[in-house]
Structure formats: C-alpha cells, structure tokens
Design a binder for these strands. Structure first.
Lengths: 285, 285
DNA sequence: AGCTCTTATGAATCATTGA
DNA sequence: GTCAATGATTCATAAGAGC
C-alpha cells in the first residue's frame, strides 16, 4: 500500500482551503502557545489568542470527516500571577463554531521543568482537548490497551477473591465466564490521564512533543491508510510517526526552517524504512 | 490551645451572613456536582449550576481573609456525549466577581472504578481549582514536601561530586552554602498534580473525598489555630481532618442527615483524641 | 551484552534591572 | 510608569560514557 506525506509551507488556514471537505481522519496539533515562543513565532498575545485561532479551527472543522477527531494540546500560561483564561474561552468559542467538546485528557509530564516560586509549584500537566464533529466517531480502544502492571496485581487479586467465590456459586453462568475473562486478561483499557515524559533531546525545535503522544492518538483514532493532519507541525514529529505507522499525513508550518526540517525528517524516515525493508527482505521473504 | 469546630445546618449562602468579613484562612469544598446527586441534593441542572453557585461564592469572597485561599474540587459531567461547560463558565463568572484564578491542580484518582464505554475511557482525574482574593497569599510549601525516593540518593551523591569541586573553588562564597543545603536535603517540592486514591469506605456519603485531600491543602495553606471552612461539608471529612490538625473549622450542610453525621463524627474524634491523650499521658508524661 | 554512573536539558516563573 | 531583557531557582528523564 502506498501512503503519502505532504509537508507544506504556509499559513494553515490558507493552505487547508486547497483540501476537500470531510477528508481528514485525525487532526492532532500543538499550536504556538500564546506568548510562549515570541522568538520563533512572533508571539500571539494571550488576549488575542482566540481570535487568532478561530479562523484556523473553522478550516479544521470543514476538512475533518464526521467520524474524525481533533486533539488539541495546549496549556494556559501564568499572566500577572493568574492562569490566563484563553483556553476556556477558546473551548466556548469553538463550541459555537459547531465543535463538540467530547473529552479532556490530561498529559502528566513526569519530568516537568524545575523551579521554585513563592506562590506556586512546578507545572507538570497539559491539556489534550478532544473535539468532534459528531457524537459518533471512530475509536479503536483495543489498540491502546496497556499491560496491567502492579495495578493489576493488587487490584485483580482483590477483585478475584470476591468474584471467584461468586464464580464458584454460579458455575456455568454467563457471569462466571465474564469473571474468568477478567482474570485471564493481562491488558487493561487506559484512563484519560497519560503519563509521558517530555523529550530531552532535539534541541533544534522549541516545542518538543514526545513521539509517544501522537503515536497514542493515531493508534486510538485511526487505522492503517487513514489520513492525519498536523496544521502547526513544527519539526514534523506527528508526520514522522504517522509515516512509520503507515498513515497518510499532512503537515503545515508557516516557518521555512520548520518546513525544511520536517521535509528532511520525513524523507530520511522513508529511506530508513526502505533500507530496513530491503535488508529484512533478504532474510525473511 | 482551644480550637472550635462549628457544624451548622442550613444553606451556606445564608448561614455565612452571620460571619464577619476577612475571617477564614482556607475554604475547601466539593459542591454537589451538577445533576450528579439528584437523590440527595435535589439535583442542580448543569445549565443552572453557575447561577446557583455565584451567590454562595460571593459570600466566600467576603468571609475569606485577603491572605486566604479557596480550593474548589469539581469536575464537569458528560451531558449528551459532551463534557458540559459549567465549570469553565463558573471560573469566568467568578473572576468577574473579583476572584483571582491562581492555579488548577489535577487530582489523579489512581484507583478510579474500571469500566468500558464505546466513546471514552475511565475518568480518572478531577479539578482542584485555586482561587485567591489577592496575589499575595499565605503558602507553607515546606509543609507538603515529599521524599525524593531511592533514586534521589544516587543522584544526590552524583551531584555532590561535581558540585563539591565547584564548592572548593569558591570557598567562602554564598554559592558554597547553597550546595551544602542541597546535599542535606532528601525532600523535594511537589508539583501541581496530586496522586491520591479515592476512599472506598464511607458509603453513607455520596461525594467521597479522601482525607488526604483536605489534609494536603490544610497543611499547605494554614497554620495551627487558623480557621477552615467547608460550606458543602457532606459527612464532615474536612472538619474531622481540621480538628485532628488543630485548626478551627466551620462546616455547613443543608441536609439534616449530613448535619447529624458530621456532628457525630467531629464529636467522636474529640473523644478519641481525649482518650488517646489520657492513655499516652500515663506512660509518657 | 547488560549494568551503573554522569550529564545535559525541557512549551517555567518570578524578581530585578535597564531602557 | 510601562515594557523588555536577565538571572536565580532546581526535578526527572534519557542519552552517552564507563566497566
């Protein structure tokens, strides 16, 4: 199967006009946080973040399939001792635009930036806000099941003691079967809290997002051959991961440096995959 | 030192009118979630939650000291497949009332109940929203420091080798003193993500809140002899904890069952403490 | 190969200084 | 006075070095 990786230079709200309606399966992105990257993106002021973002999200709504999902990674900054309200205002405004606010995942950043301040602790979480066009959307929960670690040992033991008794007393019933399924299972569905470390390498890019983050959502919301969009791609992490997972992808960024970097990274992955395929092909096929 | 525990029956926005301005050091509460406890509290519809809450928060703002803090434990419900927006609307409305939205802590509920739904995973976090009256407020960060763990031992040893060199080269400087402080430390400041298990006992109360939750915030934001308020006390967990920690406390609930239960629990704690004191007194003093 | 040990650094925040 | 730049603070992770 052929898949494509479109790396585009330009403003996403303009570039996306070239794409048809209901075309994308998953949009996942981390826009430049308000005022956070003044040096690289020119600095959107927190007070103007919503009006800046809405024309883009309007295009996202148009190109997304009705069964598709939009995951927005964002966190409000502290401004003058308070958390700014632009994220909440954005969610309210996007609902008026027609989006459904389905869920909010928490990304717990285990290795958050150190520091000590008189009024607050280290900020070690970010929002992963899920929007949809329709109440019915694609979700492949079984693809992101996690091994039951210690959690299982303590929790399942407790459950099993009570339930095994009931199991014995109801031998042959459907209930018993359910319990045994539970016991045999060594994988569990995750919750809406993700524990991932930020990546410490990759000095080139100012907004590093660990590969496991897009990977998780691509597994959860798309199948092979589906199409993923990152409208603020930065160095193209999402596209690299999508390519590796055999998903089509589109990445857009307004900065030439990022465009070049992402082009480079996705190309090199192609080569690597090609090399591996040929190497492995000799021994396996 | 004498401390008091006031358990009151009534509507908090009315009862609080009896208390003076700038009187409370910490307000911590978990209001009846919109529509979540229809059977016990009469069910506030999500669409009317904000207008229902604002008269109460106005009183909270009045009775709180300028150096005090208000911690609101809340999570939006899923209504018709979407997360409802009443929490965000409440934050925006409370800021207009004069509150500062200082921070949002995440309570990660490690043992949230397992379950499976077609469109979402287990909800294993809640918001702990911090509001203040003033940018300058009391905070005793050192009271909630956490052990650094095994890993810290190795790391600190490693650091010391590098830093001792620097120390030697700058003998007598303030820098050297800093390093020695580092070496002696085995505790680290926490972040804004709290990992607590929910309590599974206490089936009587419909909004169970583990004792460690009020305990953490009482340690962080109050000293001995300060006054804590829980305006939707439920079974009185906050007051029991405050009493045990030698803080004055006020608990208010509109339901006679909770009033009675909280009266009972705070009284029995008094007795237990008294018993312990007399018993231990014989052997120790 | 598998360990342990070492080092660099990540979407941070606040107070102070300078323009 | 307002706004921008600089310095101080200090935790968890992974990549790299060493054995």
């Amino acid at each position: 199967m052929e898949i494509f990786t479109d790396i585009r230079l330009g403003d996403c709200k303009e570039v996306l006009k070239e794409y048809p309606d209901n075309y994308i399966d998953l949009i996942i992105t981390s826009p430049p946080y308000a005022d956070a990257r003044k040096n690289t993106y020119g600095g959107i002021h927190p007070d103007h973040f919503v009006e800046w973002f809405l024309p883009a999200s309007e295009q996202f709504l148009r190109v997304l399939k009705p069964t598709g999902t939009f995951i927005l990674n964002i966190k409000e900054r502290v401004v003058d001792g308070e958390r700014h309200t632009y994220v909440m205002e954005l969610i309210l405004a996007m609902r008026k635009q027609g989006w459904l606010w389905t869920e909010e995942f928490i990304w717990h950043k285990k290795n958050s930036y150190p520091g000590k301040w008189p009024n607050r602790f280290r900020d070690s979480w970010e929002r992963l806000i899920q929007f949809n066009k329709d109440k019915k959307f694609k979700m492949f929960q079984e693809n992101v099941m996690v091994p039951m670690g210690e959690w299982a040992n303590t929790r399942l033991k407790n459950l099993s003691e009570t339930d095994k008794t009931r199991d014995n007393s109801k031998v042959g019933s459907g209930f018993g079967k359910n319990i045994s399924k539970w016991l045999e299972r060594d994988m569990a569905y995750p919750s809406n809290v993700l524990h991932l470390a930020t990546e410490c390498s990759n000095k080139n890019h100012s907004a590093v997002f660990p590969e496991s983050l897009p990977e998780w959502f691509i597994k959860l919301f798309t199948g092979i051959g589906d199409t993923v969009l990152d409208p603020f791609m930065g160095s193209g992490t999402t596209n690299v991961v999508a390519q590796r997972m055999h998903r089509n992808s589109i990445g857009i960024d307004i900065l030439p440096e990022y465009y070049t970097m992402a082009k480079e990274k996705t190309r090199s992955v192609e080569y690597i995959l090609f090399d591996k395929r040929s190497t492995y092909g000799e021994t396996n096929a």
